[in-house]
Each structure stands twice: as C-alpha cells, then as structure tokens.
Design a protein around this nucleic acid. Structure first.
Lengths: 91, 91
DNA sequence: CATGTCCGTGATACTAATACCGGTATAAGA
DNA sequence: TCTTATACCGGTATTAGTATCACGGACATG
C-alpha cells in the first residue's frame, strides 16, 4: 500500500470540518460562497457533507476568506472535541 | 477536461509556500518535523520544494503546528507578494 | 398546468497528493 | 578511506480532491 487510505478518524474529522463550514455559511447559498472562493459549488458541497474529508489547503483558505473565518480556529475546532490530536503521529 | 490542471500561478504560489515552510523549519531536520506532523519526509520535501503545490489542508495544519506557525499568516504570506489575491475569484 | 430558475445531489472523468523504493551528492566524523 | 546522516531526485502505485454532466425538488411566474 502506497498511499494510506483515510482512517475513520480522518473521515470523522472531515465531517466536523464540513459542519463547521456549513455553520459558518449560515443562510448564504453554496453557489454564492463557492463563487466568492473561486471553487465549484459541488466541491463546496462535498467538503461540507464530509465527502471530501481532506480538502486542499488553498481551497480551504479561499473558503475561509469568503466566509470570513480564521484558518487556525477551523483547524483547532476540528481537533478539540476529539482529544486525539496526536493520533496521526501514531499511525 | 474535468479537473482543471494547476496553473503556473498556482505552482508559483506553491513554491512560495514551500519556501515559507522551509524558512520556518530553520535548522531542524525534515524527518524531525515530518514525524512531528505525522507525514512522511518525502511529502514534506515535496511541499517545501514546490513539487506538491496544493497540499491537503490538514497536512499543512499539522506541519504548521509542528513548526509553531499560524495558518492565517501562511495563507496571507503566499498571496501578499503576488498582488493577485483575487485571481482565483475571477476564475 | 406548464415552464423557467435556483439549489442541492449523484455519477463520472481526470489530475494531483501521498507514500514507498532506489539511487545520487555532500558533509561530518571515526 | 569508510561510514553515517541529511537532503535531493526519479519512478511507481494507490487513494482522494476537483470539475463537468445530468437529474430531481422547491418555488415562483406565466
């Protein structure tokens, strides 16, 4: 095996991450935010639903800018409630 | 064409991003930082050399945590000197 | 009721990220 | 000199992100 498949923990983290983005989006439409971030609406939808659990850094950066949220807060919020911050280290 | 290939601008942004990470790493070794972040040394090297111009968000997040740098500062630093901050927006 | 629009979704296609392997170069130390 | 450690490079394999296409539901308007 060359590329490690995503662990269940990583997928759960992706779901939490997507939920955070959806919450930050509020009542604004997906296409509006996606257009503002320069990504396709389907990509945003996959990230929000957790079907793209590990999106690209600059994609997240653009979305965070469009949503006016902090990247550090996003990253921290995805790990805080799991209390497994170093799980990736043991893998 | 389904997935848009990386533009030259995106590759240059990746090079700047990698240079920032290398600068933040200082004299510490790649394997040390890579192990602390939970990624392979080859991945870190590719990101630093710009051969992986759009790394995953959580990969960058783990590296930033290992390097003790801010994600927001990293993202901002990659766009500041290019003066094309809204290039992705017009796409 | 028919039609058009907007939004979200599922399926598919294609590119890129990640990891492992081997080889090479350079520098420090025994 | 030989060994060791670090970093760079090329190739390969596999998974995953992203975009385009096509579909269905909601909602308004004719």
């Amino acid at each position: 095996m060359v590329r490690t498949p995503l662990t269940p923990w990583e997928r759960q983290r992706g779901e939490r991450f997507g939920a955070l983005l959806r919450q930050a989006r509020g009542d604004r439409s997906m296409v509006e935010i996606a257009a503002a971030a320069g990504v396709s609406a389907e990509t945003l939808r996959k990230i929000e639903t957790g079907r793209a659990p590990t999106p690209a850094f600059f994609t997240v950066s653009a979305l965070a800018a469009a949503l006016e949220v902090s990247l550090d807060e996003l990253a921290a919020a995805c790990v805080q409630d799991s209390d497994f911050g170093d799980q990736a280290l043991s893998a």
